[in-house]
Write a protein that binds this DNA or RNA. Sequence first.
DNA 1: AAATTATGTCAACATAGCTGACATATTCGA
DNA 2: TCGAATATGTCAGCTATGTTGACATAATTT
Lengths: 173, 173
Amino acid sequence: MSRSGAINPVPRPVPSDAALPSSSETEEIDFEVIELLFFAYRDFTSDPDAILDTSGFGRAHHRVVHFVNREPGLTVAALLETLKITKQSLARVLKQLIDSGYITQVAGPEDRRQRRLYPTERGRELALALARPQSRRIANAFQGMDENGRAVVKAFLSGMINPARTDASDKTG
Amino acid sequence: MSRSGAINPVPRPVPSDAALPSSSETEEIDFEVIELLFFAYRDFTSDPDAILDTSGFGRAHHRVVHFVNREPGLTVAALLETLKITKQSLARVLKQLIDSGYITQVAGPEDRRQRRLYPTERGRELALALARPQSRRIANAFQGMDENGRAVVKAFLSGMINPARTDASDKTG
DNA sequence: AAATTATGTCAACATAGCTGACATATTCGA
DNA sequence: TCGAATATGTCAGCTATGTTGACATAATTT
């Protein structure tokens, strides 16, 4: 606080919080679950991040390797749709992954304009190495839950996801 | 993450964890839940993002306003611990929020070095506006679940979070 | 009085998004 | 068959949000 000076030096007992709007604000915001989601996801991603740090890749690479591994033969357009990013964003990380031998491209058998993406053996290993700690964390969080409880969790997560758009509008900027 | 610089990441297949001699490869990676978490969180954050877009703030501002609103009187150090970012990262967004009248600082009543953070009325409104759609989404995902089901979901999310560090080590760079 | 702590700030840099514009190959439709 | 549309690539530059390192100031602790 060097130069700016005057920072409310007065120890007043907290800005009057007293005047709650209180109108028909019976809205109960679920702050608890909002925060649980924030912290859960933050820690969930910290696992692979630690591994990626040692390999020179980032979270963006992780996502690409993951989905290509999960759905070999994916087209670039489909990957963009899944990640909901622009092709220019994808281009950088995809190029690095291809150049480093984690992913290969094959011209589409029917539509040769397409570049279908496949993981190499190395790509598969990386995807697995990154997924492993996340899967362990999930298994740990599932500890003590029966199959029904797990189904409830999955239903909740599914319910958090936007319904798939059938629209297929342009996103290729 | 990463100051690693060098494009073309080292092709080594990630620490000791990766090679797996395929011996007891009974590992079942829970790709399903991994992806559910990815999509759920992506869509979960897209709600406030849309609002923030119109106000010139970003996701980082959202987090700060959220936690200050949730815990008025928070110290800067506590906020850094919660967000797990560096003070230099926080500085930018916090300054903007203070300058725009969303957050105020008050010298700590006991330790006057502290800058305790409080939301202004406007800050409270913003926090609420951002939380509202997220809370709605959560309520929607909870649809049809009884109290027990909701408790299971919360237990799962809690189980995903790292145990709190008691350590309190330096992070202030 | 000296050391430590809480916070702020300057400077430089990395990652991963974005828009806009344009190029190439391929496919499709009139 | 030719022109439009499509799938992809790429250049250039911008923004948001993280990082380190170094140093400043005020207040507290030892």
